[in-house]
Design a protein around this nucleic acid. Sequence first.
DNA 1: AGAGTTCATTGATCGGGATCAATGACCGAC
DNA 2: GTCGGTCATTGATCCCGATCAATGAACTCT
Lengths: 241, 241
Amino acid sequence: MQYHRAPATTTFPELFELFVQAILPQDMADAAYLRLQALGRYASAKSGEDVLADGDEDQIVFVAVGATKLVAHASGDREQVLGFYFAGDLVSVPARGAHSYTLCALQDCELIAFPAAEFFELARSEAGLLNEVLVRVLDSLSRSREKSITLGRKTAQERVASFLVTMAARIGTPLEGGCLLHLPMSRRDMADSLGLTIETISRQLTELREAGLIETSGRSVVHLCDSATLEARAGHLCAAA
Amino acid sequence: MQYHRAPATTTFPELFELFVQAILPQDMADAAYLRLQALGRYASAKSGEDVLADGDEDQIVFVAVGATKLVAHASGDREQVLGFYFAGDLVSVPARGAHSYTLCALQDCELIAFPAAEFFELARSEAGLLNEVLVRVLDSLSRSREKSITLGRKTAQERVASFLVTMAARIGTPLEGGCLLHLPMSRRDMADSLGLTIETISRQLTELREAGLIETSGRSVVHLCDSATLEARAGHLCAAA
DNA sequence: AGAGTTCATTGATCGGGATCAATGACCGAC
DNA sequence: GTCGGTCATTGATCCCGATCAATGAACTCT
């Protein structure tokens, strides 16, 4: 069973319309609109495929349909997942620098990729668009910082609890005072995101299950029964003195 | 002996002039310039002081003089340094949310703080400014992602080597084919930035010294003799196939 | 539906970095 | 200078999560 399934076929204008609804300001000039539409490179990828191999220039990618992970590749098969991006999200994918980045589909995806430099040049004449992009980049920065806290100072249990709470807020659906979560990513993806191993992820999920905080069904469905206690176990920074 | 010493006194117009030179576009309208100057709250802080306690709203802070660290506070005295910001840098300091943030002076500092919402509102009419801010926020995001890689997938030795190389690029001065580094932060700050303990930092520095890659003098001076080998030990992600 | 493959779970052992403890170096104040 | 306090280094031990190994569950394909 597959959730968040991508439509079998979507035309490019339909995809661009999703982008327009999600990102563009109401009062956008027609000329800029058309230039933006011409600039966008449309792409689709099946589950597991790399949407965008690390290129020579920064990209701004709009995820129209599906779910993706932004991955940094390390020496010796080490991988770090820098973030998950879902339908409606805007991702900044850096060019290959000191490290190498790829955007990888967790499910069948449809996306629009813009070369960052041209995108910003075009956006300079549209303050509303530039502002919207800035807001979303600040949001990415905020989440990246949260990840730094998680990776730098949290125990395995706190990391997994934190992950579940965060994902619930983004893609969960309320259910009986708790929250139902269909995880589009594998245990390996979680491990690579949290700086742990799949074995540790599995053990911590078992522990949370035995503590009665979550229930699981199959590989990808998690029911957060007790979000309050779970949040407490996430070791969120306290409102200290 | 103190490096990067702050001038004994700096007038507010002088500080704002630094901000103008570093951030503002050439063709900025006078009206916007004046409103921006009125919006900025000037602050100074001595070494070790919190410049900006976590407030109720996001702040955009320009570091005019000195050096700072952005710190997230965790339950149980745990702290995570999210980044270091030096003279000329622009920092986004989030309001207290799930976590609590403070900007803390590593040396005597002088800064200009803007409420983020009003700042962006004002910047909407100045595309050049908005664009400059966006570029700098993207840079912060990029560094934050690098930190995620470091915290998630690197060994203690790689983290310390990585830290030295990165700092050298930002505040080092070339010397005899290597690089001379005056670190404004303590071992504790390094530890809190790298997700390690001060003891581990110390041991790794010793190891790098015995390997002939660095020389140290006092607490804060590090001479990177062999940047190439150091970079190799930093475990930077390879340009893998 | 059954076979095959991938993915997740559970158990046993190992090791890197944390923790605990003590000494030593640096820096500021007088 | 030297006195005092803070900060850094070094050593001994411990523990959490990694690693190695095997079983079991879930999804895919025909």
